[in-house]
Design a binder for these strands. Structure first.
Lengths: 163, 163
DNA sequence: CGCGCTAGGTTGATGTGTCAACCCAGTCGG
DNA sequence: CCGACTGGGTTGACACATCAACCTAGCGCG
């Protein structure tokens, strides 16, 4: 119907393959996590970060650095996770509260980590093989850098450092 | 805090790079589409499929095949798009209604396609270069196949073909 | 005929992500 | 001291995705 100024055939094919991989992998992994452990990928990401820290407690800000989430998303999600007992917001001497991994949260991440890692290995690591996997990792870093650089120089000068 | 049976360093690095690329690219592209044209990526996907068809009209089922969305997601989204005037659900002789691209919808996709394609080229095609792009496309196809195959053999025999 | 099944499609509840507006302790300039 | 600004964090409204339940035309079969 349209003859739009899209991408050429090769470009389009690669891009659509990428989009479908993204969708397929994400829904597949998310579904397993949800069905078997009642965790979303977001829950998982927070729990991983907390459990990898020395003390199991971090400020929301640090979690934001680690995950690159928007602060409002973080706030909403932490509220929901607290409601489910996976974490706790704990006031401390400093101005801002700390996010603490609860026993329940620790148990949850310990329970689901092996299965999740196994699935990542099955559908990503093993399918690609070491070389292609490393190449994809580097390619991804290049893309990330390109977008980051763009974002830094995109906005008007007085707003630099935004985002 | 935990010494979980995760992925090894290389694997972890590649996987996390992939995850971040996915997130970075998606939010960046989505934000532009939304800010400049008031379209979500989902809107875009539907409009692309309709506009690429000969007649600008398809059944919801065909759109489902093309996009791999769940039927309920499709239904909800088409309802929202109809409310905004981008498409119309039109009863026809056959049992199920056809989804029709409206003039407004056609205008929207024509307006935003070049910019969107340009951004895909800027942050994906050009950053990777032809060879890596093609390699990534093939890698993605392999991953998709692996997950698909798993899904087909995963569920109990009497449910085969589910999904 | 009539019963039940299938499959495209809809609906409602719920969890999630985003934007914009807001809150407020600290800080800096006057 | 005061007023403006900054930046971490919260809130509310809304768009979106998913699940499970439901509706219903057509079909197969007794």
């Amino acid at each position: 119907m349209t003859n739009a100024p899209w991408l050429d055939d090769d470009e389009q094919k690669a891009w659509r393959s990428y989009l479908q991989m993204r969708r397929t992998l994400e829904t597949h992994l998310a579904r397993h996590l949800q069905r078997e452990f009642g965790l979303s990928e977001s829950d998982f990401e927070i729990l991983v970060n907390l459990s990898e820290s020395e003390t199991g407690r971090m400020r929301a800000y640090e979690l934001g650095e680690a995950t690159q989430w928007e602060k409002s998303r973080m706030s909403h999600h932490l509220t929901r996770m607290e409601k489910r007992g996976l974490i706790r917001k704990e006031a401390c001497e400093a101005r801002y509260p700390e996010i603490v991994l609860t026993d329940e949260g620790l148990a949850a991440i310990k329970a689901c980590a092996p299965g999740h890692a196994g699935r990542v290995r099955e559908f990503f690591v093993d399918v690609l093989g070491k070389e292609r996997m490393l190449a994809l990792g580097e390619a991804a870093d290049d893309v990330i850098d390109a977008v980051d650089k763009h974002q830094r120089t995109d906005c008007p000068p007085e707003v630099r450092g935004c985002g």
